[in-house]
């Protein structure tokens, strides 16, 4: 069940917060230091619209073996690099418990032997199994196609992680000591790639992984706009969905797998 995020349900609260933050922004804490800038707040007043559907095309032929730039950029963008390994945690086990919103996978075709490398992350399905199974509706799909977790209503049951065919989600196994304002995170909740939703809501047009990819293997944009770079690229090349058999109509597509 997708949450109707295109409804201006919280307008009053948002206006209040925007006003309050505005006052705060005007408050000089120290010379040259402001509490919170609201310079980019305008787009937040606009309801998310289903006129757009955000998605990605990943050109696997351009994805360089051994390159990890997209992963590093994602970690930095979302504050995952601020993670502190809990004292006493076993290295090997901790590596399986730490969050990863994007990772690189190297594959060999069993028949042809062809080897390819590609980044895997939340595929932002039109019919996401994680949204279907979430008991509280915390796992939801925005009108613009972004699948994400409402951290206020996530109870940490991990059923979405059981349901996701892409192993795309992470459970926060430890107390979060440091986090970014734009990416609130907390122990006991589930999280995953949200196509840099903070950039979307502040008028940004790219994702961190796309910006970081020197090979230009990642193209992000509006799948519903025929003139967008992603739509143009998709019309030129044959694309595939991972686990297309599940008919989830993913928002992330691949070429040359």
């Amino acid at each position: 069940m997708s949450q109707p995020t295109d409804q201006p349900s919280n307008t009053g609260r948002r206006e209040f917060l925007a006003g309050a933050t505005g006052v705060a922004a005007a408050t000089v804490v120290a010379p040259g230091v402001f509490l919170q800038s609201v310079a980019n707040a305008a787009p937040r007043d606009t309801a998310v619209s289903s006129d757009v559907r955000y998605g990605m095309l990943i050109d696997t032929s351009k994805c360089a073996d051994g390159c990890n730039d997209c992963v590093t950029a994602c970690d930095k963008e979302n504050g995952l690099d601020m993670l502190v390994k809990p004292e006493g945690a076993d290295d090997e086990l901790w590596d399986m418990q730490r969050p990863r919103w994007i990772r690189t996978v190297k594959l060999r075709n069993n028949l042809t032997g062809h080897v390819s490398t590609l980044p895997m992350m939340c595929q932002h399905c039109e019919h996401p199994p994680c949204v279907d199974v979430c008991p509280t509706g915390a796992s939801f799909r925005r009108a613009d196609g972004i699948v994400m977790v409402d951290r206020h209503t996530c109870i940490g049951c991990r059923y979405c992680m059981m349901a996701c065919p892409y192993n795309a989600r992470s459970f926060i196994h430890e107390a979060v000591q440091f986090k970014l304002t734009a990416t609130p995170r907390g122990k006991g909740c589930v999280e995953s790639c949200n196509l840099c939703v903070q950039r979307r809501d502040n008028g940004g047009t790219t994702t961190a992984c796309q910006d970081a990819c020197k090979q230009g293997a990642i193209v992000f944009g509006d799948l519903k706009d025929p003139n967008s770079a992603v739509s143009q690229a998709m019309s030129k090349y044959p694309t595939v969905q991972i686990r297309a058999d599940l008919k989830l109509n993913t928002g992330v597509r691949y070429t040359d797998v």
């Binding site: 990890n68 992963v71 990863r100 990772r103 690189t104 996978v105 190297k106 594959l107 060999r108 075709n109 069993n110 028949l111 080897v115 895997m120 065919p165 892409y166 192993n167 991972i242 686990r243 797998v257």
Partner: peptide, 12 residues
């Protein structure tokens, strides 16, 4: 996740 392929390396 990738029927017909063998996963050689993965970050996850």
């Amino acid at each position: 996740m990738f029927p017909g392929y063998t996963v050689l390396e993965s970050g996850y």
